[in-house]
Amino acid sequence: MKKRKSLLLSVVSVMLVFLLSGCEMAELVVFNPKGPQAEKILDLINWSLVWIGLIMVVVIALFVYIVWKYRARPDNADYEPPQEKGNHLVEIIWTAIPFIIVVILMVPTVTTLFDLEEVPAGYEDQEPLVIHATSADWKWIFSYPEQNIETINYVNIPVNRPVLFKLTSAGTMQSFWIPALSGQKYTMAKMETELYIVADHEGSYFGRNSNFNGKGFKEMEFEVLAQSPQDFDKWVKEVQEKAPKLTEEMYAEKLKPSHLGRETFSNTHLEWVDHADHHAKEYLNPELYRVHGYPGKTFTDENNDIDNDTENSDHHHGGDHSGH
């Protein structure tokens, strides 16, 4: 018994140390939203926590009460428990109550789901800024078709203006996630998904791919900088004037599995390929993914450059591939 107590003590003290060093600990970003989409989700989460807390309290109280009260003691050794079969009324009650709680949680879930697909309330009067986010191993490529600029591994957006991210991937499946601003959505090759985001505070936010995609997965992060509209416009202008042009050869090189720093260009890769298009050209490099172990055959090399109809790529933007 003594031993067990000292064990418990050491565990508790370890926990205390961690709590006291709490200043170094990351905040719970999901509980600290910086935009209406993440706020809506947080409202839903909080609502669920209330009900779930209630369930936990009731069940655990019942559990502790029953286990304590009906424990075997030396003085009840002759007690013969009744062999009850059940009770319809009680059983109906504990079917009905969880059912009601499920409905209570379901209704706001559905409304939130529909809300998240649209420009957040209060921002409908503004034209959303369209940004194509393309994920590749292991970097994020952001194209601003209207501004005709492209960035890698960072994305600047104007504060308080809706942004429509059109998501696709050049290869593996990934997930676009900026926890402070909104929930995540997958990026898939030859498909397009859409995500509306508004940042209602200026600042720098953390974004990442949350869907595992191989060796460089951990490093697949990006920065979202929400700027005042003036700063944003200034930045766009500067990029348009000063940043170099991206060429298809350079682009193909960047799509190879690698880690890149931040990069900026004064045109976009949408000129020659939109990976969301069903017939988009592929930039696959299976040989560059070799790791230790026995090498297997690869098959894709020979059809690397079929189906390259660049002139079509423009009117595939915003197509209806999002339904996949």
């Binding site: 191993d137 191989g214 696959l284 299976p286 070799r290 090498p295 297997g296």
Partner: peptide, 11 residues
């Protein structure tokens, strides 16, 4: 496609 030969060519 991660588990396919395009991205994991080993066996």
């Amino acid at each position: 496609p991660l588990a396919g030969k395009e991205f994991t060519p080993g066996i």
